[in-house]
């Protein structure tokens, strides 16, 4: 240990064992952020409108000179189908498990579409040049 310290004082080089004891870490020098780099892009993307304002008005919806932006109505004013647009749709494997005769029209249409898509993919895989 004493030898290692003497070497440090003499040459200014810290050996690995001494560095472990003393607990010195060589950090990489942080590169200076470029002007108008990623940070500036992220800053530009932060929403300007508050959540309270957004939940009452559709900003920018009125493009005419007269009039104002439309206000959001209560849920009862909107059609029923609107609330089902974000619902998860069944996958092909799920639809295959069910009986085709009992499926509703929308799911049946989806089933036909997905089956056709799977068949096309299969054909493409077979005819593809490796």
């Amino acid at each position: 240990m004493a030898m290692a310290l003497r070497r440090v004082l003499k040459h200014g080089v810290i050996p690995r064992d001494a560095a472990q004891v003393v607990g010195i870490r060589g950090f990489a020098i942080a590169s200076k952020a470029k002007k108008g780099g990623k940070g500036a892009a992220d800053a530009a993307k932060t929403p300007v409108l508050s959540k309270e304002l957004k939940s009452t008005t559709v900003f920018g919806a009125n493009i005419l000179k007269e009039g104002s932006d439309p206000k959001l109505q209560p849920d009862s004013e909107y059609p029923e189908w609107l609330w089902h647009l974000l619902d998860k749709r069944p996958m092909l494997s799920e639809l295959r498990r069910k009986d085709a005769k009992t499926l509703p029209y929308e799911d049946l249409k989806r089933f036909v579409k997905l089956v056709n898509r799977a068949r096309i993919k299969e054909q493409n895989a077979l005819t593809a040049k490796n």
């Binding site: 892009a41 929403p47 559709v58 900003f59 919806a61 959001l72 609107l82 609330w83």
Partner: peptide, 23 residues
């Protein structure tokens, strides 16, 4: 305009810039 943002996300599907309702 409705979301109050200048530019859209550079990585859609990874970074969510803002949120809007179905209304």
């Amino acid at each position: 305009k409705a979301a109050g943002i200048e530019t859209a996300s550079g990585r859609p599907g990874h970074t969510v810039v803002s949120s809007l309702s179905l209304r």
